[in-house]
Design a protein around this nucleic acid. Structure first.
Lengths: 194, 194
DNA sequence: TGATAAAACGAACGATCGTGCTATTATTGA
DNA sequence: TCAATAATAGCACGATCGTTCGTTTTATCA
């Protein structure tokens, strides 16, 4: 039961870039099996169904986000420095290696109207992500980096929107200075009511 | 050659809600044919390939956007009133009847990394959409509704991001007051440097 | 109305999909 | 090392996909 967990991680690591490139529904068991050099049935045995596979890919994306975006930022000082670090990590994560879209946005598009395990899990993970941003904004307010009366949910919404917007500008439109525009938007936001 | 155009419009009208519900790749020829009550081959004859069908659905979405979002707003006064009207029409369009995601965002996710006719067309349409917003912001600057030094591209980016963000909040997260949050964000933006 | 053309259909193709089986490896622990 | 067990492969199935082709139905217009 050791070997299994290893290859499962290998599979999920291979799945994430595929999801970001092709979307969830295009990452089939057959497709993914070829990618990792396994038989269809061998890979299938790890997940027991396509839906459960997609759920676990989503879970894996969430772990990946936490490890590579949130956790490294915990070394930065609580408040604005940490929030800024989270955001730069986030943008880096979205633009990293494999390219492609944000896995949560991809799932958003494909499972909005499809009830099932994937949609439920997506709601949980995306909700957690936004709650994490909101909490980080709260720290900024507590530390006096944002105005006392600021609404952290409001600010978290705007931050999330900007990050997703930048991703679309860069990936779809091929916008050259999307990062500069994002930075400008965030700077305006940081400077709010101070 | 009259009948053909009529059924083609019928097909595209049926396709748009499906795309918004399921994404592009899930709208298959077989699927769509069943939806409109035609045979696969009968429907196929209208498009000659699946890719061309997806391109025409995208074109149709663009026409739909122009007719239902941009054009009705032209009756409003040039400048901020018109921009506000475009935005409320836009949000209404995204939340209208069929529900589902923004077709351009759906295409964004699915065709970012897939070269071909669909991606090319998407770049054109999404670029046009954002240019239209930016132009409307320029009018606001000219009319003195926004500060002279405002950057219309910057503001257009933020507006676009907010609209997409609201859509994800509402559709995926089921956020109750997403519209209120969006309104607050836009009001802050309208009030900028005045 | 009847000839001509357009539009829609039905059947079939090869490909790919998810998912059961059973058999065959590879890994593990005494 | 050797039995027990877990992991993987091979194969087959029904479904669905895009596409082709020949036929039939429907619309057009002189």
């Amino acid at each position: 039961m050791n070997k299994a967990r290893n290859t499962k991680v290998d599979i999920l690591n291979a799945a994430l870039p595929l999801v970001r490139k092709l979307g969830f529904e295009s990452v089939s068991i057959a497709n993914l099996a070829k990618e990792v050099g396994m038989s269809k049935s061998g890979l299938f045995a790890h997940f027991h169904s396509k839906e459960k596979m997609h759920v676990m890919i989503l879970d894996h994306a969430s772990v990946d986000f936490t490890q590579n975006v949130v956790m490294p930022a915990l070394k930065s000082k609580r408040g604005l420095p940490r929030l800024k670090k989270i955001l730069s990590n986030w943008v880096g994560w979205l633009g990293s290696s494999s390219e492609g879209a944000c896995p949560f946005v991809a799932a958003s598009i494909e499972y909005d109207q499809k009830e099932g395990l994937v949609k439920e899990r997506l709601q949980f993970h995306l909700g957690s992500l936004i709650k994490a941003i909101s909490r980080s904004v709260d720290h900024c307010i507590e530390e006096g980096h944002f105005d006392k009366g600021s609404d952290s949910n409001q600010i978290a919404f705007e931050i999330y929107s900007f990050v997703i917007g930048e991703s679309i500008y860069r990936k779809t439109l091929g916008h050259k200075s999307s990062n500069k525009i994002l930075t400008e938007s965030l700077n305006r936001l940081y400077a709010r009511s101070k």
